[in-house]
Design a protein around this nucleic acid. Sequence first.
DNA 1: TCAGTTACTATGAATTTAGTAGTAAGTCAC
DNA 2: GTGACTTACTACTAAATTCATAGTAACTGA
Lengths: 157, 157
Amino acid sequence: MNLVVSHYQKDTNMKKLSDQPCLIARSLALVGDAWSMLILRDAHIGLTRFDEFRKSLGIAPTMLTARLSALTDEGLLEKRRYLERPPRDEYVLTEAGRDFLPVLFAIGAWGRKYRGGGEVTRFFDAETGTEIDPLTIDRGTGAPLGTRPIRIELPGK
Amino acid sequence: MNLVVSHYQKDTNMKKLSDQPCLIARSLALVGDAWSMLILRDAHIGLTRFDEFRKSLGIAPTMLTARLSALTDEGLLEKRRYLERPPRDEYVLTEAGRDFLPVLFAIGAWGRKYRGGGEVTRFFDAETGTEIDPLTIDRGTGAPLGTRPIRIELPGK
DNA sequence: TCAGTTACTATGAATTTAGTAGTAAGTCAC
DNA sequence: GTGACTTACTACTAAATTCATAGTAACTGA
């Protein structure tokens, strides 16, 4: 008895992904497409409503509905009623959604280095006024990732 | 006269993305799909050859050809001849490709926190033996991203 | 010569995406 | 209280992408 309404799903492929032992693959099963990431980006900027996302992204409403539903189901967004009559809902980031911000900044940092030219949107620390320069480090060693050799451990070993 | 062979391209949509002022959007135009990221993941693990990627990912060869070509064109991978007769090429990470590692780790860190259960692949510092715990900070303030308020500056302002 | 390897291309069906139009339940202006 | 407008969608069709399988080209090694 399967009552789940499946919104957005690249089933054949992505269902496999979410069961893999690799956490990168599992995560990509949820957010491994550009629309989902851009919606999360916009949510971090402060957008919450269907039409705000639609206008910002130029996305087809069907796509937006599917992505918002998926992100809500997966716990990155939360649907919240902000008006009873007429019933109006908005989408706000959950903790899991907010914790996705470092991924977006890491992507942005890569883009600044390798696709930087022209006019770009920039992010500043609101207090110090300095431009944010994202750096991903290993909390244990404090070293930036990529500067030290890595060992991989597969499950069941 | 357009002689460009276009491999993988979600043209109508993604061409727009690569011209946007947002660096996240620009980056996603190149790597904003699960296959591309998983190929980069495998490349970091040490895979270089067509069939290695194909078997690791279970990807259709048409897809793999398209993604490898795109990643090569975009400068994240480099095609290198490793055998002259018969001609055989392998794909190795460029500096831009290697610099994508923090993004993958940031995604993995999110996954560990929110999609962690069961058997997972883990990464360790080869020297200290401690598990890698990725953290994205602002190089300027040293603060983890998401802990301080941010100001956004759009181009032309 | 014959199976095996490697890096693909060809092809067609299934699935997803895009784009436009329309709907439901209201509000607001006059 | 009629018509214009808003908001959050759904319906529908066409276009594009993706998947899966099969096949090819150029070898090697037994």
